[in-house]
Design a protein around this nucleic acid. Sequence first.
DNA 1: GAGGACCGCGCC
DNA 2: AAAGGGCGCGGTCCTC
Length: 516
Amino acid sequence: MADLPAYVREREPDAPRWVWDDTARWYPPLLAAGVRVERCQDLRLTHHLLTGAPAVDATLLAGEQSEHWDRLGPTVPGDPALFSADDTAEHLRADLEDARQLAAVAASPEAGRLGLLLAAESSGALAAAEMTYAGVPWRVDLHERLLTELLGPRPLRGTRPTGLEAVAVEVREAFHAPGLNPDSRPELLAALRRAGLEVADTRASTLRGLEHDGIEPLLRYKQLSHLFSTFGWAWMDQWVRDGRFRPSYQPAGSTTGRWASNGGGALSFPAQVRPAAVADDGWLLVVADVAQLEPRTLAGMSGDRALARSARGADLYQGMVDDGAVATRADAKLGLIGAMYGATTGESGRMVAGLTRRYPAAFGLVEEAARAGERGEVVRTLLGRGSPRLVADWDRDPDEAPADRDGQDRYRRAYGRFTRNFVVQGTGAEWALCWIADLRNRLWRLGTGPLDARPHLVFFLHDEVVVHTPADLADAVVTELEAAAATASRLLFRTLPIDFPLSTAVVRSYAEAAKA
DNA sequence: GAGGACCGCGCC
DNA sequence: AAAGGGCGCGGTCCTC
């Protein structure tokens, strides 16, 4: 439609539920035209979700064109070629698909939770598009200064900056290896062995602690080299425009429902370059993260009263110590992380055993999820997202199937660790989705005018958000962040008394919000 | 020369 | 005996 923005702008005051095939396809042009929408149904995301939801009768989703919806991949921003690949996929009947989805939800015994999940998922897609549109305020001058101080001036394409090359020289001298390329694993392994260091790999964590004069410069080289290649000048050229870093998000890009990101490295936005994320003049950044999101999620979804009690304060691990469940904070963390990831050995494994007696409901829930996975069953999150099947890929690609019994057992245990983590990670992602879904509307109501004239989200990473706000509204933003967190907790866990405290920082630069 | 596997690193 | 989940990205090395 030629004048879609005008069409939407005219109707948006009635707060309709816009139904479209993919938010990443339709929303960016609207935002560019200054049109913001309150809610939508992202049929691609919700189709995918319902298709894999155990509480949904899949036959209700089948019908005209439904196989096209099955195949629909995410729209990549700025890639129009994707639309023309398949003419049918370009003109899908959204009304038919929407009707099927509504019927499928209505027929499910978990209609309430699924409806909430679909709304949250779709709102997340709106938030993702808005964040890419607004971008993280980025000071190229500060970033360049940081790079120059650490690496030397910007090098010619294909060469190392002088500062990095100097460290490489130190490494070569220390290992008496004149031609060594420290980026080459085989060369580095050979040099290490010649120096009498018998290591199986070249990871920094392996090298740290070894006794040799070359180790210190080598570790320094690795750190600088990573900065140079991942967040150096080339990254700035590609991802920063007009003083904004615009990563592209892919809602539900991970099977657990967490977001993925394709481009810009938003998921590994290192602390090293955060000093360059600075609010505009007269504006501030409000950085908020949920302390121990997943342990609290586990307490909530399992209804474990004891763990919920430990979770009452700002520090759940300390709460476990105060409750007498465990001797130290470090032990508490080790045990909970171990339970959620499936650790069975070492310090972590021992802690899990002890804590299971103390928190039977919580630890029992992840244990049961792991057993279900080992039996080859699908598990689900609290709101009903299903885990991918164990053997789905073997059917398509029998070569991938483990050949012997041992291999199959290993594979099943690995899948059990995945399903164990899936239920917690996935439900945690649902809490976070509800949080930002509510937050984006609250932020909108704080201001007037276009999106980027009001407080708005600029970054989201699993359990952390960054809001860019006019300075005089920063306190109000903190209040709304907390109110939105309370909404999310109520939506997921109803009346169970489980706290999700935020640590918030009102700062000029992202780097000032260093985690406690 | 393109494309994929693997590694190692960063984030949660 | 060993057995920790999810992701993106760039470099090297190997294959086609």
